[in-house]
Write a protein that binds this DNA or RNA. Structure first.
Lengths: 102, 102
DNA sequence: CAATCATATAACCATATGGTTATATATTAT
DNA sequence: ATAATATATAACCATATGGTTATATGATTG
């Protein structure tokens, strides 16, 4: 079940997400954009796919990747909510502290 | 230099962030809140500290942890921006596509 | 059909992660 | 002083991560 935290843990995977959001890319487009080997890129793509953030379309010898936008959008807003709550809790604590101080 | 992506990659560390945001906690408070060993918790705390998200205060036999709020706030907004850009790029692509279609 | 290009996969390696148990040390309470 | 509690650390283990090279397969081009 989509662990976006795992997906985004690596900076190369984050850059891949940017690439495939901007436009559909072939695997070799992606390989060309980095200075690591094709199998290494493949593994990153596999992780992004395991986490459902990537869709692929196979055409001839090419494999096109694009963002799975609905999933990304959903997972991103969940993440924002989860991490945003941390700050809200902090604020609530400060508020409480100030109100006790009257 | 603070890799928030590493810090938040594990669900236990995310829960710890919530705990220490809500209130200052001792290490044993945190240990009590999970079903893993004290050394395992200690390692999670060490990672959160390496990434500058946690401040500690030592008092007698207790070690109090609290959120490093400014750093968390800053890193969280950077993260939001970076991951939000992915969606913006997607939207820009769709917009461009529609405008070509007139 | 042969060469080339894109992708897939196997085998390997080093390091990181996430956990354990056992034990040491320091502080506090009885 | 002893016992109990809180924390720290060492040693170990299994698995995951992030990379490599070498090679196979499949599609396209000359």
């Amino acid at each position: 079940m989509t662990d976006i935290y795992r997906a985004i843990a690596d900076p190369i995977r984050r850059k891949i997400l940017h690439m495939v959001a901007r436009a559909e890319c072939t695997q070799s487009d992606i390989v060309a954009a980095f200075s690591i080997s094709q199998p290494a890129i493949k593994k990153h793509l596999a992780i992004l796919q395991e986490e459902q953030l990537l869709l692929e379309r196979k055409q001839g010898k090419y494999c096109y990747y694009r963002l799975n936008t609905p999933v990304y959008q959903h997972e991103f807003s969940q993440l924002q909510r989860e991490l945003g709550l941390v700050l809200e809790k902090k604020l609530a604590g400060l508020k409480h502290f100030l109100e006790e101080e009257q």
